[in-house]
Each structure stands twice: as C-alpha cells, then as structure tokens.
Design a protein around this nucleic acid. Sequence first.
DNA 1: ATGAAAGCGCTAACAT
DNA 2: ATGTTAGCGCTTTCAT
Lengths: 288, 288
Amino acid sequence: MPNGTARSLRTQRTSTIAAVIPDITNPFYPAFERGVQEVAEARGYDLIVYNTGGIAEKEHRCVRSLQQGRVDGVVAVFFNLKAEDLLPLLRRNVAVVRLEAVKKQTDNLDLPLDNLYVDNVAASWAAVEHLIGRGHRRIGIIAGQSGPRQARVRGYREALAAHGLVLDESLIRDGEFSEDGGYRAMEGFLGDPHPPSAVFAADDVIAMGALMAIRAAGLRVPEDVAVVGFDDIPMARLVTPQLTTVAQFQENLGVRAAEMLLERLDGVAPEYGRYEEMPFELIVREST
Amino acid sequence: MPNGTARSLRTQRTSTIAAVIPDITNPFYPAFERGVQEVAEARGYDLIVYNTGGIAEKEHRCVRSLQQGRVDGVVAVFFNLKAEDLLPLLRRNVAVVRLEAVKKQTDNLDLPLDNLYVDNVAASWAAVEHLIGRGHRRIGIIAGQSGPRQARVRGYREALAAHGLVLDESLIRDGEFSEDGGYRAMEGFLGDPHPPSAVFAADDVIAMGALMAIRAAGLRVPEDVAVVGFDDIPMARLVTPQLTTVAQFQENLGVRAAEMLLERLDGVAPEYGRYEEMPFELIVREST
DNA sequence: ATGAAAGCGCTAACAT
DNA sequence: ATGTTAGCGCTTTCAT
C-alpha cells in the first residue's frame, strides 16, 4: 500500500479537494456536500470539509490552511471573502469554485476563478410575487444577516416596487439564519399594531421558526399569516402546513460545482473564470 | 507558507483526521460531524469526511483509502466492518474510534481500538415501555435494515416480553432508514386487519414517513396511532404533532469520539481499547 | 525491458 | 547560536 503523502509530495497532486461551507448543521448544506462528494469520490478524490460559521475571521483562517498545499482545489461558500482574498490560493495553483448568490460582474473576470450562482434576486422576487398574487398587500421579510441576505432583500424590494406597493421599512426584520431568529422576528411582527398578512423568510430554517411563532400565538397558516421560505430543505414538506418555498436543488449545486472544479484541474476549463447560472423553482405547497 | 505535504512526509503526522459516516444527508450525522470538527479544529486538525452509504463494499474501500497514511486517526460509524477489518489501520498506527450501537464484549479487548456507544437496547426498551405505559398493547416496529437495527429490535422484543405481551412477528417490519421506507411500512400496517395502535420507528426519519402515511390515511396521531422515533433530529420538534423520540445527543457523541481519538494520538490513552457508554433520554412530546 | 538515482520541501539531527 | 545535511517514500527520468 503506497504512501499517499510521499506520492503527493512527488507528484504535486494531493487527490484531495476541500469543501468550505458555513455550517453543516444548516440543512441546506448536507445535500450540497453530498453532491460535491459524489463527483469527488467517483474521480478518486478525498474531500476535506471546513465549517466557517460564515464568520470572516474563520474564512480567512481557512484560506490560510488551504495554502499549505493540502488540496488540489476547493469548492467554497464564502459569506465574507472577496475574489482578491483568494489570490494566494490561485497563485499556489489551487483551483477555486465559489457558490454565489448573485452574478457579480466586476469581481474576477481576469482570474481563473469559477463561480456558480442561483439568481437570488429573481428567486426572491418570484417568492414575493407569488404572495402578491395571493392577494397580500402587507408583506414582511425576515432577512437573515449575511451571505445571501442582501440579494434576497433586494428581490423583495423590487417585487414590491414592480407591483406598486409601498415599502414599509419596518416590515424588514433581521434575524440569524436560525429557527430561533425566525421565531423571535415573527413574534415581533405579531406584536405590532399592523402585522403583515404574509411573510417571506429568507431561508427555510427561519421559516420553521416563524411557523412555530405563529402557532404559539394561536394563529393559523396560511389563513392568518402566509409564509414562504427559501431553499426547500427536506423539512419543508414535512411540516404542517407544508412550506411553500424556493427550491435551489442543493445537491445539483454541489455536483456542478465539483464538476467545474475538476474541469479546471483537468486543464479543460477556459483560462478565465466562468459564471454559471443555476435554476431555482418556486414550490407552492400549503403555507401560502 | 510551509508545504504541508512535505512536512507530513517528514514528521509522519498529517494533522488530519477522518470521519467515516454512512450518509451526511441523514439528519443524525450533521451534528455528529460538527461535534467531531469542533474538537478537531480546536486542536489544529483538518477533517476528511467519507460517506459510505452504510454499504460493506464502500466501507472496505474507505479503510483501504485510509491506509495510505493520509490521516492520523479516524472516527467511524461502520455498519458492516468488524474490529478485525480495522487491523490494517491499527498496524499502520492510525488510531480508530468507533461509534457503536451496543457494547460488544468479545470484540476488541486486546486492540488499541476505542469505542463509544449508546445502549440502543435499553433505549429502545424505554421507548416501547413508554408506549406500554400509555396503554398500548399492540405495538409495531418499523425497523430499518442495518446498523443499529438489531439492537433496536432486541430492545423492542425485550420490553414486550418484560410486560408479558405476546410477540406478533407480523408487527416487525423492515424498511430503509428513509422517509419513504417509513411511509411504505406504515401503509402496510394500516392496510392490515388489526393494525397496531402504536408504532416504534427505528429512527426519526422513518418516523417522519410513518407520520405522513398516517395523515394520508386520514387518521390522527396520537389518537388513532401513536408514534415514537429514535435520534431526536432537529425535525422532531418541528413536525405536527411534535415527535416523541429517544435523544442520543449526536453532537456530544461527535465531541467525545474526537476527544478519545486525540487522547490516543497524544499517547495518553490506555494501551487497549476502551468502551465508553453515552447517555440517551426519552423525550416525550405530542405523538404518543 | 529492467534498474539506478535524483529530487519533491520539509524537519531534526548533527557539526561547526 | 547558526549552518549543513540526511532522509521521509514515492515517481520519473535516465542509463544500462
């Protein structure tokens, strides 16, 4: 049985890739990781996983660790790092594919840095438009705090504007991307003199918390308050009422990201970075 | 920035450990992985993750891959491998900690192989006894197919016997550890002339499927059929009705397993393998 | 075809 | 204290 370390030193290839994600206990990521792993494994690569908590300092530490040459490439979901922060990796010839929430035009056209993204602005727009179509006029958003937050709030704003609805800034609430954050934000809404009749939760975990808060207040979904989520995590169709949400097919995302990475490692990728858009789909269930 | 590969070759240490799990998309494992990672990261170790699908052939392949000396130690949940299958790793001085479903007395007393286990027999016993205490006399089990299946069925049998209930073999159904498996098995029960009034699902994912099948049949939980699960995955308290289940605190499990591994890597573990028992707790919610 | 040897980038031992 | 060197186990080149 040959020694992999020695082989790696000699060949300058580690047969290992890294997945950098915020938090594996957020139900969005297991399927993503599995997607990455499927293709990695099929091609004989091991997978190292980093959890950054979506925290800038840990993301930086992660990049530093990856500079040690322990991996051939990395698939990453960064909430804070910019393309320039990845330069040390690229210079060391470590390939990088990022999962993004929007297409950033200015970012990295001249770097060999690939990007995959779901158009979160359009997706949020679709979610909010669905609510408007159901007759809602007073629609709140529980927005999360980082990562895709900005894109999703923007979709919300644009959808309202497009339909001539006034934007009430008090209808935009922040919370963590956690059930607790969703619960508390929803409690806040329900304590208001004019609570919204529908709420767009920036992810399904937040939506779960919102659902619980609505039930705890003795109200009904969707009759009293309608709820849309984002991500279509496995739980979404298991709760009562089943959650209307925006699917972004996380396993596919992982598969495609890993494929793009391997294409680059195989030297068959274009010289400069690609931006590849991936589909979303509004899944209408019972909560709206 | 020093080259980690060269350093590893020289020092014979990789500063990497592996977590071997069946499937990260089973909601039991993300928290376990995170527990392992917390302590690994705190001690400067990277974490490689393998998904085996609980399949014997992939578990073997995994061991072979780990023999290449890419890791210092491994935390593993094997469904098929025995202690002897791990000998190649131990001989290569790769430390191993297993998560088990029972204490196997005969297995590895003379190997430097550590084990962590939750007493699945006692835990299942507790779940079934709870059902009996609620007045149920005809109790089914949906048992899964591998891994902890055997221990959980044994707890079920022993609890029934201890309370003088006759064991009806037709009340033991297999399914995969999946929502689908649970759904189909529950459908089967409901189609019977004498369906059970309560069902013990061998894990929470199976229980989710059972819940859906009961609802689809127009019946109510717990009035028509009571359901207990196993694991206390995050979903368990989010479904309606909230699921009664046996918690085994998976993040703790991951933390302790990683600690045991690092103790061995630090040379402060006893020469021969340890069996360490971890607690479970029956969490009574609304489904029983 | 088979075999010998150089060297990947480090660290630890040793010599100065 | 500082500098030099051997060698970890492989792969690949080059010589036979």
